[in-house]
Simulated scan of single mutants.
Amino acid sequence: MQIADMALYLSKTNGRNQVYLVNDLKVPYEQAESLLYSDLGRAIEQELVEITIEYGPGGRVN
């Protein structure tokens, strides 16, 4: 639930009309665990997780 909550928060802070979906880990769970629960944005920047950004009708809105 914590990871899903952070993904929704990232969606809100990076613009409206979008949602971040965490698809998969690119590294072993143990390597990504601390960032997954504390700073999902940094885990994404460090390419520890695979994400998809889905935009709502009308595309991206900032």
Results as ranks from 00 to 15, higher is better:
residue 16 R to H: 09
residue 34 S to W: 08
residue 6 M to L: 14
residue 54 E to M: 07
residue 3 I to G: 10
residue 37 Y to E: 04
residue 12 K to D: 03
residue 49 V to A: 04
residue 57 P to F: 03
residue 38 S to W: 06
residue 21 L to S: 07
residue 6 M to F: 12
residue 46 Q to I: 08
residue 47 E to K: 15
residue 48 L to Q: 15
residue 27 V to I: 12
residue 28 P to C: 10
residue 15 G to W: 01
residue 3 I to M: 01
residue 35 L to E: 05
residue 15 G to T: 08
residue 44 I to F: 02
residue 42 R to E: 03
residue 32 A to N: 00
residue 14 N to Q: 14
residue 11 S to H: 06
residue 50 E to P: 05
residue 32 A to L: 00
residue 34 S to G: 01
residue 57 P to E: 09
residue 42 R to Y: 07
residue 27 V to F: 08
residue 52 T to V: 03
residue 19 V to H: 09
residue 16 R to I: 03
residue 32 A to Q: 10
residue 62 N to T: 01
residue 49 V to N: 02
residue 42 R to C: 07
residue 56 G to M: 04
residue 36 L to H: 07
residue 44 I to H: 07
residue 25 L to K: 07
residue 45 E to I: 08
residue 6 M to P: 06
residue 53 I to T: 04
residue 57 P to H: 03
residue 25 L to P: 00
residue 23 N to A: 10
residue 15 G to Q: 07
residue 25 L to E: 07
residue 41 G to K: 05
residue 44 I to E: 12
residue 48 L to C: 12
residue 41 G to L: 02
residue 54 E to I: 06
residue 43 A to K: 00
residue 17 N to I: 09
residue 11 S to L: 04
residue 17 N to D: 08
residue 30 E to G: 02
residue 38 S to L: 03
residue 28 P to G: 11
residue 13 T to W: 02
residue 62 N to W: 11
residue 36 L to K: 03
